[in-house]
């Protein structure tokens, strides 16, 4: 009995150091890291903060300034006289800045309707492994149209120039290659043209990307104006408008992202492309366009 225990103990004492082979040490680290689990957030659901015309789920990183220059040429079906639209251009120039991990702000100026716009975008929920299956952000944009008044014989109010857009962005990165998002949107005009035109317009957007390779992706973005009117007797959409559709490519080259696309929308602010698009995509009322994004790191992360 005693001998056996001694033998066992001796065996144990010799065997013990050998238990810790390299693989066991590695297992020890694995077990340990499981205990102190770090959330693995989905990153780079899209390449930049715009899907095509509208916002994507992405923010610019804190301390980073993103200069965006966007162009939409004229419509392709205008023929060779206009060089298929290249003779005209509508553009927006804007700056975005990341304030924190969750909050970014931006402002811009468009030639279309001489608009100024400013927005704030906040990440509410972030997709993570073993956490939330989706990311959710909220964006609010205010747009100021500065064209001269149509009718100067009446008293015009400054507030009549304003319109607002509020959007939720619900996104999921399904895999490295596929990301999709939904954008329920609400647009408010402080003033409507006449009694049948709505002040409030609802739309549901959908879009996504398929990554073709590490630096190239194919994007689609569509906004469907919903038949909801909160005032009886008003239309649910502006007269003569169509839903906005855009297809394009994101090309990433170091600090730049180039977005080349085709869309039936002329403007690049939320109220203009969601509610004021008049072109019919399938009849050739298509604009070729591009967005160029260049980031500058203003504030570097503190070392150590």
């Amino acid at each position: 009995m005693m001998k056996k225990t001694i033998m066992m103990l001796m065996l144990l004492s010799f065997a013990l150091p050998r238990i810790y082979a390299q693989d066991d040490l590695m297992k020890m680290l694995d077990d340990d890291s499981k205990k102190t689990k770090k959330k693995n957030y989905a990153t780079a659901t899209f390449k930049t903060s715009r899907l095509i015309n509208g916002h994507s789920i992405e923010n610019v990183a804190p301390g980073v300034l993103d200069l965006k220059i966007s162009h939409r040429f004229g419509m392709l079906n205008r023929g060779a006289y206009e060089l298929f639209g290249l003779d005209q251009a509508s553009m927006r120039i804007g700056l975005d800045y990341g304030i924190s991990k969750r909050l970014m702000v931006g402002a811009g100026r468009s030639t279309y309707q001489k608009q100024y716009d400013a927005f704030a975008k906040f990440k509410i929920l972030r997709q993570a492994q073993g956490g939330s299956p989706i990311s959710v952000s909220a964006v609010s944009t205010v747009m100021l149209k500065t064209l001269k008044w149509d009718n100067i014989s009446i008293k015009n109010y400054y507030t009549s120039r304003l319109s607002f857009a509020h959007q939720l962005i619900i996104a999921r990165k399904f895999s490295d290659g596929l990301s999709l998002q939904l954008m329920p949107s609400f647009i408010h005009y402080n003033i409507a043209k006449n009694v049948t035109e709505p002040n409030d317009i609802f739309a549901l957007g959908g879009g996504g990307r398929i990554k073709l390779n590490k630096r190239l992706s194919f994007n689609v973005e569509y906004y469907h104006v919903l038949p909801i009117s909160i005032v009886t007797g008003e239309n649910y959409r502006l007269a003569g408008t169509k839903n906005s559709l855009a297809v394009g490519f994101d090309i990433e080259t170091g600090g730049h992202v180039f977005q080349l696309h085709f869309t039936n929308s002329t403007g690049m602010t939320e109220k203009t492309f969601i509610t004021e698009t008049t072109g019919d995509f399938f009849k050739g009322d298509v604009h070729f366009g591009f967005n160029v994004s260049r980031v500058f790191t203003i504030k570097t992360k503190k070392k150590k």
Binding site: L29, S33, T43, G98, T297, K301
Partner: peptide
């Protein structure tokens, strides 16, 4: 995280790549 076994001389490391932090956010991405 890393372990050294001073008896056998074994040394192992486990490194999460997402924990590498860069000066520029875009570099990190």
């Amino acid at each position: 995280s890393s372990v050294i076994n001073t008896q056998t001389g074994d040394m192992v490391f486990a490194i999460l790549l997402k924990s590498f932090h860069f000066d520029r956010a875009l570099m990190e991405e």
